[in-house]
Amino acid sequence: MIRVTDLIKDANGTRILRGVSFDVAPHTVLGVIGASGSGKTTLLRCLNGLERIDGGAIEFDSIRLEPTLPASEYSRRVKELRKKVGTVFQHLFLFPHLTVLGNIIEAPTHVLRVPKPQAENEALSLLDSVGLKEKARRYPETLSGGEQQRVAIARALAMHPALLMFDEPTSALDPKRSAGLRTLLKGFVARGHTMVIVSHSIGFLEGLADELLYMEGGEVVESGATDQILNSPKDPRTQDFISQAK
């Protein structure tokens, strides 16, 4: 479904991504692990078009992004891409002036032009699925970090993305809440969602991600089935990271 080939990203003269390649098959979960500063966030920002790529290519179904495209064509394709990709940032960036429900229906009603009652019904069933139906009329600032995160997930899902991406979803959660989120995401995967999850928490990805990709210094050191990466990593750098994380 998504294929990344030799992806290169430069910023201010330094190369942040140095030729990253991987595939994500439909209905699977890819976990991206790596130390802080290894380029994980930048990778996600390239995948959702917030950063323009400087080399290689991103293919999502029939949409292809490559650095040689003229700016207008690139941004046209990014718009197409964004219809298929939902992102939950590390800092969630909920809209503070809108209620929980308002956050979720904002894009469906104004971008997809879904009639408001229909969008609200859909939003309420999404909130139900993340366990927040009772808080639909609250403002984000009155919710806990974990609740806010689930609002952000519902907001992304309301646009029916084919791929859902998470950046460090457990960074603001205690272990119990992390486990809750993991259960929630597993439920979505069981219903056929495809995900890319960036996390430095291996425990969170274990049993959730089908494949893992270990990054260091803007490069993919090793990738493969989750079991294989966690239990018998080939590269010594991966071994180091895994043993330290465990």
Binding site: R82, K83, F89, P96, H97, A107, H110, V111
Partner: peptide, 26 residues
């Protein structure tokens, strides 16, 4: 925060819509 713009764009909003509905009210 710039993240408010980015979150709007990622939800498919164009700059005018993001400005009018998300940035301006805040």
């Amino acid at each position: 925060p710039r993240g408010q713009w980015e979150a709007s764009y990622l939800l498919g909003m164009n700059p005018v819509l993001a400005f009018r509905r998300i940035i301006l009210p805040q």
